[in-house]
C-alpha cells in the first residue's frame, strides 16, 4: 500500500469513527462493547420479632368508628368491627392511603367492595377472634388471629403500618415476598 492510499484509509477510518460517535442528522450512534448477560442477587435478611398472645379471645366488637391509636391489635378489632357493622367507609378508613389509592386507580375492579365482601363472609356478630401472633418487622406490625365461626377456625395475618400516628392495614406489605415468608413460618 502506498503512502497516499494509507493516508486515505486512515482518513476514512477517522470519518467513520466520527460519524459513529457523533450525531449525524439527528441520529445518535454510540459504539458499545457488548459485556453480555449479567446477574445480580439481592439478599435481604430481616429480623422478625414474634410474640404469642396468651389465650386472648375477643368476643365483642367495637360499636362505632373511633380513630385513635391504642395499639395495632386494637385496630385489627376495629377493622373487623367495621365489617360486622357493614360500614364500608369506616372499614376503608382503616387502610393505608397507598392501599386506597391503588383501589381508586383500579376502580373498575371494585377491589374495595370485593375485599369487603370477602371479610363479610367471614365475620359477623357471633364470630370470635382468637389473637395468636404479634409480629414486629422493621416498621411494620403483623397481627395473626383465628376467626372462629361455630367449629370453623380460619387463620389470618394482617400487616399494619403507622400513618400519621394511626395504625393502618397495609396492602403493599401483604403483597410482598417478606409477608408470604413470614406467614409461612408462623402458620405452617
Amino acid at each position: 500500500m502506498n503512502k497516499s492510499s494509507h493516508l486515505l484509509l486512515k482518513l476514512g477510518l477517522a470519518l467513520l469513527l466520527l460519524a459513529s460517535v457523533f450525531s449525524v442528522s439527528g441520529k445518535t450512534v454510540i459504539p458499545y462493547q457488548d459485556e453480555g448477560n449479567k446477574e445480580f442477587t439481592l439478599v435481604q435478611k430481616f429480623k422478625v420479632y414474634q410474640q404469642k398472645y396468651q389465650d386472648v379471645l375477643v368476643t365483642e366488637f367495637v360499636p362505632a368508628a373511633r380513630d385513635v391509636n391504642n395499639g395495632a391489635d386494637r385496630q385489627v378489632i376495629r377493622f373487623l368491627s367495621a365489617v360486622v357493622k357493614d360500614d364500608l367507609n369506616w372499614w376503608k378508613s382503616t387502610w393505608t392511603a397507598e392501599s386506597l389509592n391503588d383501589w381508586q386507580q383500579k376502580v373498575a375492579l371494585n377491589k374495595d367492595k370485593r375485599l369487603f365482601n370477602y371479610w363479610k363472609a367471614r365475620v359477623n356478630t357471633k364470630t370470635q377472634v382468637q389473637l395468636t401472633d404479634f409480629i414486629v418487622v422493621r416498621q411494620s406490625v403483623l397481627v395473626g388471629f383465628y376467626l372462629i365461626n361455630q367449629d370453623k377456625r380460619e387463620y389470618h395475618l394482617l400487616a399494619l403500618a403507622l400513618e400519621q400516628s394511626r395504625w393502618r392495614v397495609d396492602q403493599t406489605f401483604m403483597q410482598s415476598d417478606l409477608y408470604r415468608e413470614i406467614k409461612q413460618k408462623v402458620h405452617s
Binding site: 448477560n37 449479567k38 446477574e39 439481592l42 439478599v43 430481616f46 410474640q51 389465650d55 389473637l131 414486629v136
Partner: peptide, 30 residues
C-alpha cells in the same frame, strides 16, 4: 411496638428474601 393484650416475650427469627435480576450490559467503547 407492643401488643395491648396479654402476650409472651418476643422470640426472634430471621427471614431471608432473595431476588435475582438478569440484565444485559453494554459499555461505550470510548
Amino acid at each position: 411496638a407492643s401488643p395491648t393484650y396479654s402476650a409472651a416475650e418476643p422470640k426472634v427469627f430471621t427471614v431471608e428474601i432473595e431476588h435475582k435480576f438478569s440484565y444485559h450490559l453494554y459499555k461505550p467503547k470510548n
